Computed example of a mutant assay.
Amino acid sequence: MKATNTAIKFSVEVVVLPVSDVDRALRFYVNQVGFTLDVDYAPNDLFRVVQLTPPGSGCSIQIGKGTTAAPAGSVQNIYLVVNDVEVARNLLSERGVAVGEIRHKTPIDAWDGSFAPGLDAARKDYASFCEFFDPDGNHWLLQERGYRSS
């Protein structure tokens, strides 16, 4: 193999989520979470791929039929980073998504895995979270980053 001085760029662009009902998941992600539908392609009855992208994201999700052997609802801890977790939580709740309460890391500067209720008082990046699940149980975490710059 020839060595090169060219830097290689690696980019995560798609995460496949296993779902039991593609149409139900599609409605959830578009109508309730607010993702954009990019592709809905079904060349036959055995295969369908639906690609959706969160607003402002460089990474999409795919749901479908024949796209993964993973059990529906088995994907856990997908981070959806937002610049204001409180506003994002309220928006999702208004759209009918069951979103958990906001919590923050504690102690923030020497985090040991513990959380306390509510927003981080200083609104530090990566400190405040809340969560939701899609209809199959795939688990999402909203994480705040960039609050001060918004």
Rank of each mutant, 00 (worst) to 15 (best):
T4E: 13
T6Q: 13
T6C: 10
A7G: 09
A7M: 04
K9C: 05
K9N: 08
V12N: 11
E13A: 15
A25M: 10
R27W: 03
Y29R: 04
Y29E: 07
V30A: 06
Q32R: 14
V33H: 00
V33T: 07
G34F: 01
F35V: 06
F35Q: 05
D38H: 04
N44A: 02
V49K: 11
V50I: 08
L52H: 04
T53G: 03
P54W: 10
P54R: 12
G56L: 06
G56E: 09
G58F: 05
G58W: 03
I61Y: 04
Q62A: 14
Q62G: 11
G64E: 08
K65G: 05
A70T: 02
A70F: 00
P71W: 01
V75Q: 10
Q76H: 06
I78R: 02
L80V: 08
V82E: 02
D84A: 03
R89K: 12
N90Q: 15
L91R: 07
L92T: 14
E94L: 08
V97D: 11
V97H: 07
V99R: 12
G100T: 05
E101V: 09
E101N: 12
I102N: 01
I108E: 09
A110P: 00
A110S: 13
S114F: 07
A116S: 12
D120F: 00
A121I: 01
A122W: 00
R123F: 10
R123K: 11
R123C: 08
K124N: 13
K124L: 09
Y126G: 01
F129Q: 07
F129M: 04
E131Q: 12
F133P: 01
D134S: 13
D134E: 09
D136G: 04
G137D: 00
